[in-house]
Write a protein that binds this DNA or RNA. Structure first.
Length: 1000
RNA sequence: GCUGAAGUGGUGGAAUUGGUAGACACGUUGGACUUAAAAUCCAAUGGACAUUUAGUCCGUGCGGGUUCAAGUCCCGCCUUCAGUACCA
């Protein structure tokens, strides 16, 4: 038996980390108070989807950064809210349920457990008492509640905010809808107050739906009949589904939509007041896509008489940003899907047009977009009438015009728009020139600044600005157009044909109209189903629920089967079939940052007091892939909640930082498979590259197979071989060491087919793999699990190393080998405080050098944290510890503040040493050391002396010398004379405190 | 195509308003300790030439420019990554 060792004589990270994680949990060290004298600070991470694979080393990157910042703010005396939770509805759990029958709630709970264990062992300072899960009924109750608020609201353009739908009903009842300035569906019919009171309940509901902020609408979707589901553009490759390769068709479907377009302008304006990265704001601006111009309506001419207007055909509405070029219109182009196409196409052109429509329908939106070079289109045979000249204008269809943007129709001005120009050239349509002094024989002229209009009646001689104004004025005068601002931002489809999402609090009444269930009955919980697939009749998975009808009498409500509902007494009954769609992934994540402020409140989504105290997120960290999804939708919901007086601010995140991704370093081997089962050969990468220096892709070409053949024959021993296939395959990175050498035995054991493979070794008789940086993913066998890192080096090493890898926002590859650097730094740090005899910190007075090093460190680390430059502060710590070690520093006055500086980065070791220094409370609330400039004041400077800009040597000089004194001292210096070799300098540049440069 | 970000040793990266390019690490090489290994410590490490010392030249994707001085500023290009609309 060994004598009992006094603990903590050496750096036992496993023990220390477990101890402090337990301490933090038991003492609720990081619980944030909703009532505090301290100023508040809210640090938020984009919450994770708990996938079955668990965390890999890339995931915690942003969490470590935000944790450092949160801990730093606590040291500065802030009451810090730093919560975490789970975006736990989502497709992977549903896919898993479809395959295994396992309920997604069970898988999700298990995955969350794994995530929590992994997060805990990294030592984050989360306030877990505020954890939220979007799939928890106590959470989605409020998601449903917000949905109801949206349903009960409309957007009033006059007050520029959302208002109660009941107000709108009052307006309809008193004056009809003619004066209502609302964001609503296109083409709403006008009605009077009398009309309104005469409408039946159904008609009223239909009208109100055209105004509500969430509404039912027919939307075109990518429907895959074989899978019984709607697919995203991403999930379609070459017109068939990515999974299974089934055909996909465009289909209209009734779905819930969110009227985000009502907020387009405010979402755009709001960007100016938040401190988000420019690239992110730019993406949102592009996505919103504001353009200012005019809408113009063109009458369609009867194709027989060529006289206007053709009876029974509505005019064609177009949107243009260049109303000043209206006299340059020589044709019109409609999207092939445009509803007028079938009405106006002449019998002669019918066959051609239909063939063209059929051809474009086959092309996916992506295909149409990717192909810029091919110009296609068809003439409808119909003509429109120019609003001013009354000249007939041929109407074409072309797939460069998209149905979903603007009105799906374009007035084509070939002289001023390159795409119109190309189209006109291709189909021999005339290209009238309406610009003064511009040659358009080669290309269109689209420079607005230099535009002077010609050949355009009343617009002649005007510039772009004046002509635009005049054109709009004249259009308004004849009632055929008006100024208009157009946004690309489309209303967001909010229905998903899935099981694992929030149920809509909606049933359909006897008129088939949607009704919200009363708030007091929320949450409407997800029903149990036998199967998670669509029903045989093509309904969403909720169609499988045996009981999914709402039945309510007065204050009593229950969910019943269809039969039970039909057999119930109709008198006083409310209810009907419940909505079968569920909400999309972004529903729960659009407001969760508010819930954290008061996460366990059963009565409100958050109390007024909590909202008033916490206000908004001060620092939000997450990936840039959410730039136009989550980050736009959540801003929309926040603005809506703000309009309703439910939250105190209309932008919820003051500052946002994007973290980059940690990439994997994949390992590849070259494999050659021979015919007639002659075997599998693996070729060492260095060897392979020496013999075939060209790239592998080139090698795969036919002509090179021969050379590989003869190469192999030589290696194997003369026998003629034939290659079946040659490939470069991923191997698991765990089978490769830091020198890129493969453990051959592991590869043999990995897959049965490799068991008897032959290996052609390279230099030193080693088998080398090739390395390449790729996204970390299971399928690439390059995933590194943080659990392994924590077990081998500890959480503090992992935290430091992730930061040390490089700037937070940058993409960078992971390489486990480098972690030894930060790990030995922590050991050195430990040794600064503790040796074989225990604590060695003394009350000795700090030396000047000690103080200088400390205060340099404070200055640098503080500015680094505030600039989110965490990588450079890790180097600063290393320099500090190296210097203190060299200085033999043991002074408590120095080593104590050093611990506080390091504690946000490496909290466990800091807590342990803090305790050893005699403190009984957590280091997390110790004040951040104050920087004192006086310790850094220098009396001399080691000047670099340059000759013609090239540094030759340095020279130590007092800092209080004047320019002339410096020049004199330098010129008298022996080394200067050596450099000049008798030449007289033409010029001497002296920058005191910086540099001396001698020219000549 | 457009928008955004980025190109620096063998590798990750550093360099504050233009002022000593390569901090800090990894890796590599040599050495100490050890029976040996691990761990630890010390030294060297951008390239080329030279080597007794001293030193010289080249060098931050490429080509120009501004400046006493450019990784940093300006002009023109190339490459990589990410997002993305034929946006009228």
């Amino acid at each position: 038996m060994q004598p009992e060792k006094i603990p903590t004589m050496h750096y036992n990270f496993n023990e220390i980390e477990a101890k402090w994680q337990k301490y933090w949990a038991e003492n609720q060290t990081f619980k944030a108070e909703n009532n505090s004298e301290k100023p508040k600070y809210y640090v938020l991470d984009m919450f994770p989807y708990p996938s079955g694979a668990g965390l890999h080393v890339g995931h915690p990157l942003g969490y470590i950064a935000s944790d450092i910042y949160a801990r730093y703010k606590r040291h500065q005396g802030f009451n810090v809210l730093h919560p975490q939770g789970y975006d736990s509805f989502g497709l992977p759990a549903e896919q898993y349920a479809i395959q295994t029958g396992q309920h997604p709630a069970i898988t999700t709970a298990e995955n969350i457990k794994t995530y929590r264990r992994q997060l805990d062992q990294i030592g984050f300072s989360f306030d877990w008492s505020r954890e939220v899960r979007t799939s928890d009924p106590s959470y989605y109750k409020w998601t449903q509640w917000i949905f109801i608020q949206l349903f009960n609201s409309w957007y009033n353009n006059d007050s520029d905010k959302a208002e109660a739908i009941s107000e709108l009903e009052n307006i309809f009842a008193s004056e009809g809808n003619k004066k209502v300035n609302a964001v609503c569906d296109e083409n709403v019919e006008y009605f009077t107050a009398e009309d309104w009171s005469g409408f039946d309940a159904k008609k009223k509901q239909q009208i109100l739906l055209q105004y509500r902020l969430t509404y039912l609408a027919e939307t075109e979707v990518n429907w895959c009949p074989a899978l019984g589901t709607v697919l995203a553009n991403d999930e379609i490759v070459n017109g068939v589904s990515e999974r299974g390769g089934h055909p996909v068709i465009r289909k209209k479907m009734t779905q819930w939509s969110m009227r985000i377009s009502a907020y387009a302008e405010r979402l755009l304006q709001g960007l100016d007041k938040i401190d988000w990265t420019d690239s992110l704001k730019e993406s949102q601006r592009n996505w919103i896509g504001k353009s200012v111009g005019a809408s113009v309506s063109f009458n369609v001419i009867s194709s027989e008489t060529k006289q206007s207007p053709s009876s029974g055909v509505r005019g064609i509405e177009v949107f243009t940003t260049r109303p000043d070029t209206i006299f340059g219109v020589s044709f019109m182009t409609l999207a092939p899907e445009h509803e007028l196409v079938s009405q106006i196409t002449t019998p002669e052109q019918k066959a051609e047009v239909e063939a063209y429509i059929e051809a474009t329908a086959k092309r996916s939106e992506r295909d149409r977009m990717a192909d810029v070079k091919t110009i296609t289109g068809a003439f409808t045979g119909a003509y429109a009438e120019h609003p001013f000249t009354k000249a007939p204008i041929p109407i074409w269809i072309g797939d460069y015009v998209l149905a979903g943007y603007g009105t799906g129709a374009v007035m084509s001005v070939p002289c001023g728009d390159q795409r119109d120009y190309d189209f006109a050239k291709h189909f021999n349509i005339p290209i009238p020139n309406i610009f003064e002094g511009v040659d358009i024989s080669e290309e269109a002229f689209s420079d607005k600044e230099k535009t002077i209009i010609a050949n355009s009646d009343f617009l002649n001689g005007l510039n772009y600005k004046k002509a635009t104004k005049r054109a709009i004025y004249e259009l308004e005068k004849i009632g055929q157009g008006k100024g208009k601002t157009n946004y690309r931002l489309r209303d967001a489809v909010f229905s998903r044909q899935r099981y694992w999402g929030e149920p809509f609090p909606v049933y359909y009444d006897e008129n088939g109209m949607p009704q919200m269930i009363d708030e007091k009955f929320l949450p409407l919980e997800l029903p149990e189903v036998d199967k998670y697939l669509p029903t045989e009749t093509g309904e969403p998975p909720l169609g499988n629920a045996k009981k999914w009808y709402w039945l309510q009498y007065g204050d009593k409500a229950e969910i019943v089967s269809k039969e039970e509902f039909e057999n119930s007494s109709p008198s006083g009954r409310l209810g009907g079939a419940l909505e079968l769609n569920t909400m999309p992934g972004w529903a729960g994540s659009s407001w969760y940052f508010n819930r954290y402020m008061d996460a366990n409140n059963p009565n409100e989504f958050a109390s007024k007091e909590a909202l008033a105290y916490w206000q908004d997120v001060d620092l939000y960290i997450g990936g840039s892939e959410h730039a136009t999804g989550h980050l736009l939708y959540s801003r929309f919901w926040q603005k809506f909640l703000f309009d309703k007086g439910l939250v105190p601010v209309d932008e919820y995140a003051k500052k946002l930082i994007n973290q980059g991704m940690i990439l994997g370093t994949s390992a590849f081997v070259y494999r050659v498979q021979l015919k007639n089962n002659k075997g599998v050969y693996f070729i060492s990468s260095d060897f392979f590259k020496k013999v075939f220096p060209h790239s592998f892709e080139k090698l795969k070409n036919e002509e090179n197979v021969g050379s590989i053949n003869s190469f192999l024959r030589k290696e194997i021993g003369g026998e003629r071989v034939e290659i079946v296939s040659m490939s470069r395959i991923h191997v698991d990175v765990s089978m490769v060491n830091s020198s890129n050498e493969l453990d051959i035995q592991s590869l043999r054991e990995w897959l049965a087919e490799f068991e008897n493979a032959e290996f052609l070794l390279g230099e030193d008789d080693n088998f080398k793999v090739e390395r390449d940086v790729e996204k970390m993913s299971k399928s690439k066998y390059n995933v590194v699990n943080p659990d392994d890192i924590v077990a081998d080096y500890g959480a503090d090493s992992l935290r430091l190393y992730e930061m040390f890898l490089g700037p937070l926002e940058q993409y960078k590859p992971w390489n486990t080998a480098g972690i030894t650097g930060v790990h030995s730094f922590l050991k050195k740090l430990w040794k600064l405080y503790v040796d074989d005899n225990g604590l060695k910190v003394s009350d000795a007075k700090p030396s000047k050098d000690n103080l200088k090093t400390l205060h340099q460190t404070i200055k640098k680390v503080q500015s680094d944290i505030e600039n989110f430059s965490f990588n450079t502060s890790v180097s600063t710590f290393m320099i500090a510890v190296n210097e203190f070690t060299k200085q033999g520093c043991t002074s408590k006055e120095i080593l104590e503040p050093l611990l506080v500086l390091i504690s946000p980065y490496a909290p466990h070791i800091a807590e342990e040493l803090w305790r050893l220094l005699g403190h009984n409370t957590s280091i997390s609330t110790a004040p951040f050391p104050e920087f004192d400039e006086t310790h850094l004041v220098e009396s001399t400077k080691n000047y670099p002396i340059s000759f013609n800009g090239k540094m030759r040597f340095t020279m130590e000089l007092p800092l209080d010398l004047s320019k002339d004194e410096i020049e004199k001292a330098v010129l008298e210096y022996e080394k200067t004379k050596d450099q000049l070799q008798g030449r007289t300098p033409k010029k001497v540049i002296v920058v005191p405190g910086k540099i001396v440069n001698i020219v000549g």
